[in-house]
Simulated assay, not measured.
Amino acid sequence: MSQNTPITLATWRTSDVIATAFRTVPDFIPTARIAAAPAPSDLPEGPTADFGAFDVALPPDRHFDLPALLAATATDAFLVLQRGRIVHETYGNGLDADTPHILMSMSKAVTGLVGSVLAEAGTLDLDAPVASLVPGIADTSWRGATLRHLLDMRAGAALDAATLAAYAAATGWEALPAGAPPADLARFFTGMASAPGTHGGAFKYDSANTDLLGLALERATGRSYAQFVSERLWQPMGAAHDAFVTVDSRGAARCSGGVCATARDVARLGQLVLDGGRRGARQLVPARVIDDLWTGGDAGAWRAGQFGASFGAMGLGTTRYRNGWYIVDGPPRQLFAMGIHGQNLFLVPDHGLVIVKLSSLVTPIDPPAIMLAHRAVTEVARLLLP
């Protein structure tokens, strides 16, 4: 495909254009602006980390230094903060420090964090049924589900193949066939056929949960997702660049995967969480919200859920899921967010580390690349002592 060929909904995740598409999302999907801070927070540099001894091994006998690992995982940005300072920063595939990159399901961590902030402020009750804010879902599979069930992926809504296709069409990320009826998220949720759903059980990953949560948050606040993320998180934390979120045909945010942000602003978000919700002397995110990220989530629900076996095979140790974030009890102890096609944010508190890895892997879920990313974190932590 020629570099001059326009990127479309039909082509944006294909191998010829994916790296370009992931940094130019507003060119082919409608987006809403998440305004940056008038005065960005400082992100000082140095001293530069020495990764000359970096070595990640995969069986039977493959070894990767850092450049080889980044190349093997189609890395567009790799940024390491230690104790709030940039100690390593690498860009590739046309990305730079000033250009937003789509975060895919890392967006859930943004949504979960700001949703928890709104709950702490008394704007909403996380134990309330979703139908109290989105009445149209009262006769769907989400009947009886609470906002907490959505946040922790413990809603038991039943989505068959046809329903998943309808959801994909509603997000605005797919090219619709000629003559197809209009599609949007609100229409999808309220028009979904009723099927029994049991909530509060094992972890069951479903991006539709987070997009339904987004509708509920917008109705609770009377503000758009982009507005309240900017007001409650992006501007207070000192983001240097506007972020964006993709929106459907009626302007509803795809808050499960559509946030686009620079690697440095993602690092600022990670540092805010690592610092217990504080920016300098100001407590921007209530300490209880951050504490709940580290201590919340149900390890039993995770083990019984759909990712339990695969994460266990990577040797990550005890894992939980809370508010769009993954908690690993280690070693090393970690909090992380992740998205398809290789998007990652890792926090390693015992080493003072924030690691951002943005990628353009063609395969949405690439187990060897996921393994390499996690082993890279362990190796960076080994080399950068507390």
Rank of each mutant, 00 (worst) to 15 (best):
Arg232Lys: 12
Tyr225Thr: 13
Gly200Leu: 00
Ala195Gln: 05
Arg219Leu: 08
Leu176Gln: 14
Ala252Phe: 10
Pro181Phe: 13
Pro182Gln: 06
Met192Ala: 14
Arg268Trp: 03
Ala186Cys: 12
Asp184Gln: 12
Ala220Tyr: 03
Gly238Met: 06
Ala226Gly: 07
Gly276His: 11
Gly201Asp: 00
Asp206Thr: 07
Ala175Tyr: 01
Arg268Tyr: 04
Met237Ser: 08
His241Ala: 07
Arg282Tyr: 05
Thr190Val: 15
Arg250Gln: 15
Arg282Gly: 02
Ala220Ser: 06
Arg254Gln: 04
Thr190Trp: 08
Val247Asp: 03
Thr190His: 12
Ala183Val: 11
Ser224Asn: 09
Leu274Tyr: 04
Val273Asn: 11
Ala239Asn: 04
Ser207Gln: 06
Leu185Tyr: 02
Met237Ala: 10
Ala195Tyr: 00
Gln235Arg: 14
Phe228Asn: 10
Gly276Asn: 11
Arg219Asn: 09
Ser256Gly: 15
Arg187Lys: 14
Ser256Leu: 04
Val259Thr: 09
Met192Ile: 13
Ala252Gly: 01
Gly270Asp: 04
Glu218Val: 13
Ala178Trp: 00
Val259Tyr: 11
Pro196Gln: 14
Thr221Gln: 09
Gly238Trp: 08
Gly214Leu: 08
Thr198Ser: 04
Gly280Glu: 13
Tyr205Ser: 05
Arg268Asn: 06
Leu272Tyr: 07
His199Ala: 02
Gly191Glu: 04
Ala195Glu: 02
Ala240Ser: 14
Ala216Cys: 06
Phe189Pro: 13
Gly270Thr: 02
Leu272Thr: 13
Leu185Ile: 04
Leu185Cys: 04
Ala183Trp: 12
Leu217His: 09
Ser256Ala: 15
Gln227Ala: 13
Phe203Pro: 04
Ala193Glu: 08
His199Gln: 05
Pro236Lys: 00
Gly270Leu: 03
Ala220Trp: 00
Arg264Asp: 01
Gly201Met: 00
Val259Ala: 06
Ala261Gln: 07
Asp206Trp: 00
Arg232Gly: 07
Leu215Ser: 09
Ser194Phe: 14
Arg250Pro: 06
Ala263Asn: 01
Arg254Pro: 00
Asp211Glu: 05
Ala281Lys: 12
Gly257Ala: 11
Gly200Ile: 00
Phe228Thr: 10
Thr210Phe: 14
Leu269Glu: 09
Ala175His: 06
Ala193Tyr: 01
Arg264His: 10
Lys204Trp: 01
Arg268Val: 02
Ala253Glu: 08
Phe188Trp: 12
Ala261Gly: 08
Trp234Met: 09
Arg282Glu: 15
Ser256Phe: 11
Val247His: 06
Leu233Lys: 11
Val245Met: 12
Glu218Ser: 14
Ala253Gln: 07
Ala193Trp: 01
Gly222Leu: 11
Arg232Glu: 14
Cys255Ile: 14
Asp248Ser: 06
